[in-house]
Computed example of a mutant assay.
Amino acid sequence: MAVPEQTPGEIAEPTVFFLPSVPGRGDDGRPALALKPLDDGRLALPLYTALDRLVAGCGDRQPWVAVLESKVEQVFRDSGADVAIVDAELSDDARWGDDTEPVGLGDYREAVAGHEQDAKGDSHGY
């Protein structure tokens, strides 16, 4: 990733990615990330380059966590995801509503639980 240019004496702000999460915490106490099951059976870790892109892609009710760019690779490895997707737009039925969780969240939890048993690392959150 390109590093923005700085003027002398200016302190650079760290680059942050926004990751969708689900309510609650993983067994390790970290926020539980919302991995997205893909049609081919793989799990994707959605990453958003700006908060407004997360809102556009997931809706304004989506829980999220911010992760420093320097930690994203470790978060990806620890998540159990097979691939990362950047600034993806979720379908309407996969978004959080005012009083509802996304359609299929139970299926999502089952898919993640099944994938955790198959994955080498079983940590799913930061």
Rank of each mutant, 00 (worst) to 15 (best):
M1V: 13
A2I: 00
E5Q: 12
Q6M: 12
Q6W: 01
T7E: 14
P8L: 14
P8Q: 15
G9P: 00
E10K: 05
I11Q: 14
A12T: 13
A12D: 04
E13K: 10
P14D: 10
T15S: 03
T15C: 01
F17S: 02
L19K: 04
V22L: 13
V22T: 15
R25W: 06
G26Q: 01
G26V: 00
D27L: 14
D27T: 15
D28G: 04
R30G: 05
P31M: 02
L33D: 05
A34S: 09
A34I: 00
A34E: 09
A34G: 01
A34D: 13
L35F: 09
L35P: 05
L35W: 11
K36Q: 13
K36D: 15
L38C: 08
L38K: 09
D39V: 03
D39M: 06
R42C: 02
R42S: 11
L43Q: 13
L43K: 12
A44E: 10
A44I: 08
L45W: 10
L45T: 13
L45K: 09
L47V: 09
Y48K: 01
A50V: 00
A50Q: 10
A50I: 01
A50D: 11
D52M: 04
R53C: 08
L54M: 14
A56S: 04
A56E: 11
C58E: 13
G59W: 03
R61E: 07
Q62L: 14
Q62W: 12
Q62A: 15
P63H: 13
W64R: 13
V65S: 14
V65N: 09
A66G: 15
A66C: 08
A66M: 13
L68R: 11
L68H: 11
L68Q: 11
E69Q: 11
S70H: 07
K71V: 02
K71P: 00
K71G: 00
V72C: 05
V72W: 03
E73R: 08
E73K: 04
F76W: 15
F76R: 10
R77L: 15
R77I: 14
G80I: 07
G80S: 10
A81N: 11
A81Y: 11
D82P: 04
V83C: 07
I85N: 10
V86P: 08
D87Q: 11
D87S: 12
D87G: 13
A88N: 03
E89N: 03
E89K: 08
L90C: 07
A94S: 10
R95K: 13
G97F: 01
D98M: 06
D98A: 11
D99H: 02
D99V: 01
T100S: 10
T100G: 00
E101P: 01
E101V: 03
P102W: 06
P102C: 07
V103C: 01
V103S: 03
G104I: 15
L105F: 05
D107T: 04
D107C: 00
D107S: 03
Y108M: 07
Y108Q: 10
R109T: 06
R109K: 06
G114V: 03
G114Q: 14
H115P: 00
E116F: 02
Q117V: 12
Q117C: 02
Q117E: 11
Q117S: 04
D118N: 05
D118R: 12
K120E: 08
K120D: 05
G121C: 04
D122L: 02
S123N: 09
S123W: 11
H124K: 06
G125A: 09
Y126Q: 07
Y126C: 06
Y126D: 08
Y126N: 02
